[in-house]
Structure formats: C-alpha cells, structure tokens
Design a protein around this nucleic acid. Structure first.
Length: 225
DNA sequence: CATCTCAGTTTCTACCGTTG
DNA sequence: CAACGGTAGAAACTGAGATG
C-alpha cells in the first residue's frame, strides 16, 4: 500500500496556494497550508511532512528564513522546494544556501511542480542535515543519537529536545524558565518535571560517556560543558 | 549557625501506542 | 480487546547552597 505523501505549502498568495493545493489534493497528496513563514514553522514543529513547498517572499517570515530555521534549528531533513518570482542566480544561490533542494520560478506549470515533487520524494529525506558536532559530541537529530568518543546513546524525544536547546546556547547557561518555555510553550506543568528530565538525561549521558555533560549553575540554569 | 530556597533523586501513576 | 512496555508528569523526600 502507498502512504499518501504529506505536503506542507507555505504561500501567502491565496489564489496560487488554492490552485496548487487543489491540484496536489486531486493527485492524492495530503496538503496542509500556512499563509506566512511563522505559521509554517508552527506546523512544521507540530506535524510530520514528507516534503515542503515554500514561497520565498512572505510576510512575518520569509521562505529563506523559514528554510534556514528548518535546517539549523529543527534539524529537519525534509526536502524543500522554493517557489519564487525571482530568477536571478543570486536569488537561487540564496535559496540553496538556506537549505533548499529545488527551486521553481513563477509562473510555472503545475505539472512541473508535481514532477519535481515526485523526484524529491523518491530520494527521501536528506542525509546531510541534522548532524551536529559541538562540545565534543556528535548529535544526530534525525535518530536522536548522541556520540562521544565512539560511544553512542539514543535519547528520548523530550531529552533530545532539552539537549538541543542547551547545545543551541552552548557554551552559555540556559535558565530553567527558558527551557520550560521552550519545551511546554505557554503552559508549563505545575509540578517540576524538568527536574526529572534533566536528571534522566544526565544519567543517560553519564552512564554512556563516563563524563559530565550538563552542569548546573546555581540559580542561573544549565549549561553544556 | 539557623533558616530558607533551590536542586537532585526516587517513586508512583496516568496515558498511549503496540502487540498478541 | 486486554496486557504490556515505554514515556511523561506529580509528588514527596533528601541534600546542598545562600543569606542574614
């Protein structure tokens, strides 16, 4: 059985978004919408997609910025196609540098978009994205694996999330408040589960690597050492 | 040194997806 | 559909550091 491919379309032009979505839905894709980059990012954080289509020029957050965040903050290997009215070499270069896999200049034939989608989907997720080397650790964000001197552990998703946030701010201290905000967004739980998660994350890393990875800075927060 | 606050640890429980 | 295992959150207890 075929799984139907989930597509995220981030495009601020209603008319174009509508026609692309209708076309792709008719072909059997599952299509989600966002009308600006910020909304697109929220959907990307929440759901899983097989491929994303970004308009380059959008309010709130441009496609370039969104793509950059997708690659460097979410460490997502999802294939990305840019749609844009600009067709200079510089524009294309900026797109690929932001992490795009393909680039389609408007106006375009819907069939061409479909062909490019198929080509990218057949290649699957990118393998060069999501590997981070920092503080002596090698982190594979796609598989939630952490390596240190040849030793490897797999982390739970929430543990990985915490580690990712700490690494993002390395070598600075991240406050507990900031972590809670990042993990639970608007509604952090009443009790203090962050304690437990930090504790377990530490235990996991220290058992595996025989090394202190997370240091507590009293009343300030946590930092990677 | 007494007290308070912050952090670490452990245990229990609820929830959810998987499996037989 | 029940049993099971994995995961996350709540709560209680312990210990360490700050503060006056």
């Amino acid at each position: 059985m075929f799984e139907k491919s989930q597509v995220l379309l981030v495009e601020d032009n209603n008319e174009l978004a509508g026609s692309v979505a209708d076309y792709l839905s008719a072909l059997g894709y599952g299509v989600d919408f966002a009308f600006n980059g910020a909304a697109g990012l929220q959907l990307l954080e929440k759901n899983n997609y097989d491929i994303v289509i970004f308009d380059v020029a959008m309010p709130k957050m441009s496609g370039l910025e969104l793509c950059h965040k997708l690659r460097h903050e979410l460490f997502s290997p999802i294939p990305v196609i840019f749609l844009t009215a600009r067709d200079t070499l510089e524009d294309k270069k900026a797109g690929f540098q932001a992490g795009a896999d393909d680039y389609l200049v408007k106006p375009f034939a819907l069939e061409e978009l479909h062909l490019r989608l198929q080509a990218l989907l057949s290649r699957g997720p990118r393998r060069d994205i999501g590997i981070q080397q920092i503080a002596g650790l090698t982190i594979d964000h796609n598989q939630s694996l952490v390596n240190y001197q040849g030793k490897q552990v797999r982390l739970l998703s929430l543990q990985m999330h915490i580690l990712t946030i700490l690494l993002k701010h390395y070598p600075n201290v991240v406050s507990r408040q900031m972590l809670e905000q990042a993990i639970w967004e608007g509604s952090p739980p009443n009790s203090d589960p962050l304690r437990t998660h930090i504790y377990r994350l530490r235990a996991t890393l220290e058992v595996a690597f025989q090394k202190t990875v997370i240091r507590t800075v009293y009343a300030k927060g946590y930092q990677i050492v």
